[in-house]
Amino acid sequence: MVHAATGFDLLAAGVGPALAAASTATALTAAALAGRPYGLVVSAGIGGGFQPAAPLGSLVVADAITAADLGAETADGFLPVTELGFGTVTHRPPKSLVRVACGATGARAGTVLTVSTVTGTAARAAELRDRHPGALAEGMEGFGVAEAAAAHGVPVLEVRAVSNPVGPRDRAAWRIGDALTALTEAFGKLAPALESWNPHDH
Score class of each variant (00 low, 15 high):
Ala68Trp: 02
Leu194Val: 07
Ala146Cys: 14
Ala68Thr: 06
Gly39Ile: 00
Trp174Ser: 08
Glu195Cys: 00
His91Cys: 05
Thr119Arg: 08
Ala32His: 12
Pro80Phe: 03
Leu11Glu: 03
Leu11Trp: 15
Val145Phe: 04
Leu59Phe: 05
Ala72Ser: 14
Ala5Val: 11
Ala64Pro: 15
Leu79Val: 09
Asp201Ile: 01
Pro17Val: 04
His3Glu: 09
Gly177Ser: 09
His3Tyr: 15
Leu10Asp: 13
Arg92His: 14
Ala67Leu: 02
Val89Arg: 04
His200Met: 12
Ala32Asn: 08
Thr6Ser: 15
Ala13Asn: 07
Asn164Ser: 05
Met1Tyr: 14
Val154Ala: 02
Ala107Trp: 00
Leu183Cys: 00
Gly71Thr: 11
Gly57Glu: 05
Gly71Ala: 06
Gly47Asp: 02
Asp63Tyr: 10
Ala27Met: 06
Arg169Gln: 13
Met140Asn: 03
Gly144Tyr: 09
Ala125Val: 03
Leu194Lys: 06
Gly120Ser: 11
Lys95His: 15
Val89Asn: 05
Leu136Asp: 11
Thr26Asn: 12
Leu113Trp: 00
Ala109Tyr: 05
Ala179Met: 06
Asp178Ile: 00
Val60Asn: 05
Ala109Gly: 15
Val156Leu: 04
Val154Phe: 06
Ala20Ile: 05
Phe187Lys: 01
Asp201Ala: 13
Ala72Asp: 12
Ala101Trp: 11
Pro192His: 10
Ala25Tyr: 03
Val41Asn: 12
Pro17Met: 10
Trp174Tyr: 14
Ala182Ile: 05
Val60Leu: 08
Asp9His: 09
Cys102Asn: 04
Arg129His: 13
Tyr38Gly: 00
Ser58Gly: 09
Ala109Leu: 12
Arg171Asp: 14
Gly14Ile: 01
Asp201Leu: 04
Ala101Asp: 10
His202Ile: 07
Val100Trp: 09
Gly49Pro: 11
Gly106Leu: 07
Ala22Arg: 03
Ala12Leu: 06
Arg92Asp: 10
Ala191Gln: 05
Val15Gly: 03
